[in-house]
Design a protein around this nucleic acid. Structure first.
Length: 374
DNA sequence: CGCATTTGACCAGT
DNA sequence: ACTGGTCAAATGCG
């Protein structure tokens, strides 16, 4: 591409995304075409990100996928932000798609050569994590010779001890992938970054040498699909506005749209959708569907005690837990958008705070770098 | 009532 | 022994 202006590149990417969506009905069966198209879009956005990175956003956007573009409209770059504002929906949905594709490709790539995933990650940019983080992660995992092993298999991990003690699985997923993503500076900054999947928190732990606790998440559908995917989310010590997200395992549940390992019972699907819907602050109808699908993590005002809650003494449920604060997202959107929309808008939307909370001054968002409130 | 989160305890790896 | 990762009871919320 000849363009060098990042915004122009972004526009190009959005255009591609629109074209893709327009042709979506014709391409539903042509996964290769879809992959190619998505890849093109991803590359375009990746290029845009590089431009941004190498020019003026370096400080804030460093390792950021396009969602960062969207998520910090308050300070400088007003012009670009305005120009990009109408693209937000597309960017967000594209980001979600990119993550999906990224996951898919990772899975495919992993099966071929787990060591090459980083290359793919940097290509996709969505996962172009810090080198040192990646390196350290790899040195921790791959360095020990860990490979993706059949997860879920609770039977044992070498020390088949059986007997009465409860079994604890460890390193049931081998591969790790670390990326650094920005904290949304608007809305709730406590919410871990959106990545296109739904996660359920199962633990939090203080990590030696880190100011902030590490949150442990697993796929919401772990049981349903026996999905082994997990992620660890931790705020960076030196940059509290960045999360280091480590993905472990890959989503088998995600593959349900193409090659489901275990098809979920229909009622479970509707149950999931119902829950998903119920937990969403439904936006005004003017907001592109794709946008708010991935927008939820930005502004779910209130909940999201997922991260940083409090280390040693996070007051338990005290936090305005507006319901399940799993990082909901478009993962369930394996269904046609129209269907999803139908379901959603039939569910009785009432709220109309979509973009509003996104761009309102984050004044009541009290970001406490120390957090420990002690 | 069901589900998600919190949190202390337990377990595995180094 | 230490640290990170996971479990599961307790708790809270819708």
């Amino acid at each position: 591409m000849e363009e060098t202006n990042p915004i122009s590149i972004i526009r190009q990417g959005c255009k591609l995304a629109r074209e893709l969506e327009a042709n979506l009905p014709n391409l539903t069966d042509q996964h290769n075409m879809l992959l190619t198209s998505c890849d093109d879009i991803i590359k375009v956005f990746g290029t845009a990100k590089e431009r941004l990175y190498t020019t003026q956003y370096q400080d804030t956007i460093s390792h950021t996928p396009m969602n960062m573009l969207i998520r910090q409209p308050q300070e400088s770059q007003q012009t670009q932000i305005e120009a990009a504002s109408d693209l937000q929906g597309w960017l967000r949905s594209s980001y979600t798609q990119a993550m999906d594709i990224f996951q898919l490709q990772l899975q495919a790539d992993q099966s071929r050569n787990p060591f090459e995933t980083q290359k793919l990650g940097s290509d996709v940019h969505v996962a172009a994590g810090r080198d040192h983080a990646e390196a350290s992660a790899r040195s921790r995992s791959i360095g020990r010779g860990e490979f993706p092993v059949p997860p879920i298999d609770v039977s044992d991990s070498g020390t088949g001890n059986s007997s009465s003690q409860r079994q604890r699985r460890r390193r049931d997923d081998g591969e790790r992938r670390t990326l650094t993503v920005p904290v949304p500076r608007i809305g709730n900054t406590e919410i871990p970054p959106e990545d296109g999947f739904t996660w359920r928190k199962y633990g939090q732990k203080e990590i030696l040498g880190s100011k902030y606790p590490r949150g442990y998440f697993r796929c919401t559908h772990q049981k349903l699909y026996q999905c082994p995917a997990k992620k660890l989310v931790q705020r960076l010590d030196d940059d509290p506005y960045m999360f280091e997200v480590t993905y472990r395992g890959s989503h088998t549940c995600h593959m349900s749209s193409t090659a489901p390992s275990i098809p979920p019972p229909p009622d479970q699907i509707s149950h999931d959708i119902a829950q998903f819907i119920a937990s969403q602050p439904l936006p005004s109808s003017s907001v592109p569907l794709g946008s708010w699908l991935s927008m939820d993590s930005l502004g779910r005002g209130g909940s999201g005690m997922a991260i940083g809650g409090g280390g040693g003494g996070s007051g338990s449920g005290s936090g305005s837990g507006a319901g399940p604060s799993t990082t909901r997202s478009g993962k369930e959107v394996e269904f046609p958008v129209a269907d999803m929309a139908d379901v959603m808008f039939n569910s009785g939307s009432s709220s109309s705070n979509s973009m509003d909370f996104l761009f309102q001054a984050p004044e009541d968002v009290k970001w406490k770098p120390g957090d420990k409130q002690g």
